[in-house]
Design a protein around this nucleic acid. Structure first.
Lengths: 193, 193
DNA sequence: CCAGGTGTAGACAGACCTGTCTACCCTTTC
DNA sequence: GAAAGGGTAGACAGGTCTGTCTACACCTGG
């Protein structure tokens, strides 16, 4: 989330990945070249290619980190910390999204972004699909904890609301999280036993 | 002005645009180069640049055609032809989406695609946002015809369902249209007077 | 002391891409 | 019959990008 490049004391591998995370997150994959990454990270080109044999490998490492930082470290963690009741934890996702959409550095979802930028058959696109499925898995777990009917089906419907609100936010509608949350409430009510 | 149509081929302008429509629709903007378009269309490079001063201009013309063909010529037209009741016309959108997602040439939404590929500040990205707003406008009109409360707000929520199902379909979930439709039913029920 | 691993700096190859330009062809119109 | 306009074919300029390569510097451990 920090835009500052780390001090040169940290090791090169980490510095490259942190820089790539920042640049890829904000501007996408195609728009960020290797040359910009090495310059921003303060690293020689040979060093980057020693740690990451190709740009695709760097992108894959970036997506893995995105899951750690965004999916688990931010969305899941925040949702769980904001409420005790599992239903409220689910609804809290859209409170978090609301803050996300209204923040300055909202740049649309990295996973959707890469999926559309690279296509579903490209290795990085396939990886994005995998990480999006994991997001759905987090929702399914919460749905189980909330003792909702058909947690897998619930998670798929909930996922539609999450993805839809992200796209609508990218379109410019900053109030979209509240609308998605309202539909989420209806969906929860329908899945109660 | 002349009504004479030369036997060899159709109008070059039309041939270029039709080829660009096909290639851009299926593979995205960045992945399709000018050289491929002129070769596929069977046209000289100078001819393309005579009709479209730059690739961006060609993309803008492509997006305009996409609205004509897809938004109005297909989704809106089909939805209206499949039901008389406005509420059923709205729900029919997801029947159409269902067939779309399951068709061989489903390639995700062009407008979302271009928006994510080019970014919201690029002219073509801005145009995509405009055409997505027009899709929402079609929904709002149908909502008015169905005499639903707050048709604009309804259309925004409905739009979340549409966008979400498209992304989930791109992710590989082919049953997503049915789930979106079920949530659509709930949303309609909530907006009845 | 020196060998190996890690780093820097930057030139360079090779493959793309968009957009321009020349040179020529063919048809229609005045 | 000449001019004009639209078309073809393709070279070319100028830019981008990834990835390789050379040459050198600095530790650190044996």
């Amino acid at each position: 989330m920090s835009a500052t490049s780390p001090p040169p004391t940290t090791d090169a591998h980490e510095r490259i990945l942190a820089t790539a995370y920042d640049l890829f997150s904000r501007r996408g994959i195609q728009a960020v070249g290797i040359d910009e990454i090495i310059e921003t990270a303060g690293v020689a080109k040979a060093t980057l290619y020693r740690h990451f044999p190709s740009k695709d490998d760097l992108v894959l490492a970036f997506l893995q980190r995105r899951e750690d930082v965004w999916t688990h470290g931010w969305v899941e963690r925040e949702a769980r910390s904001r409420a005790d009741d599992p239903e409220d934890q689910l609804l809290a996702i859209f409170d978090i999204f609301d803050e996300w959409f209204k923040s300055d550095d909202f740049e649309a979802s990295v996973f959707i972004n890469v999926l559309f930028e690279m296509g579903p058959s490209h290795p990085t696109g396939r990886a994005s699909i995998h990480y999006l499925e994991n997001v759905r898995g987090v929702v399914a777990t919460m749905a189980e904890e909330a003792d909702l009917r058909d947690p897998q089906g619930f998670a798929r419907s909930w996922h539609i609301l999450m993805q839809g609100s992200i796209v609508c936010a990218a379109e410019g509608d900053v109030e979209t999280a509240k609308r998605a949350q309202a539909m989420g409430r209806m969906l929860i009510a329908q899945h109660r036993r």
